[in-house]
């Protein structure tokens, strides 16, 4: 078997290109870079109905993404949906009278938590709960109510 230095170089190039490809996939294509770089703290919000909210749904304030939903569970005593959100620690000045609402991005878009800051001087700390919440608008419910109402008016 003959081996030349060209062959070595080509194998080297091939392996390097393959590894570079894997790095490209990891950093440029997937969300790895946005996940690992920041540390975060947790806020809790209790919703009557969290609708189509999912783990990893965005949490935003004034349209800027500041974190993501880390877990959703049901409180078996109050039958509320307990949503835990991990917020990037650079946004550590969220007033304790903030309102959390579940909104839908566009008509068919995904659901997200929107935080609307209040005027309080005291800020929420790790693992504290947001008191004022507004549930997801369930489209079927709203349409049902609308139809019911227009039927009432016709009578």
């Amino acid at each position: 078997m003959q081996h030349t230095s060209t062959q070595d170089t080509l194998v080297g190039l091939f392996v390097a290109a393959g590894i570079a490809g894997l790095f490209f996939l990891a950093l440029k294509v997937s969300n790895l870079s946005s996940l690992t770089e920041k540390d975060s703290y947790t806020l809790i919000a209790r919703f009557e109905n969290s609708g189509g909210l999912k783990v990893k749904s965005p949490v935003s304030a004034a349209g800027v993404k500041i974190g993501q939903v880390s877990s959703i569970s049901l409180d078996t005593k109050t039958y509320e949906s307990v949503v835990k959100m991990s917020i990037n620690s650079q946004y550590n000045a969220i007033p304790n009278d903030t309102t959390a609402s579940v909104f839908t991005a566009g008509l068919l878009g995904e659901q997200y938590v929107s935080l609307e800051p209040g005027g309080s001087e005291e800020f929420l700390k790790n693992n504290e709960a947001i008191e004022i919440t507004q549930s997801a608008i369930i489209l079927e419910k709203a349409i049902g109510q609308f139809l019911f109402k227009s039927a009432e008016e016709k009578k």
Partner: peptide, 19 residues
């Protein structure tokens, strides 16, 4: 094209499973 891709593809679920 790129930003939606980065937002939707997960490193662990997609890339590692592909590997």
């Amino acid at each position: 094209y790129w930003s939606q891709m980065q937002a939707k593809l997960d490193f662990h679920d997609d890339i590692i499973n592909g590997v």
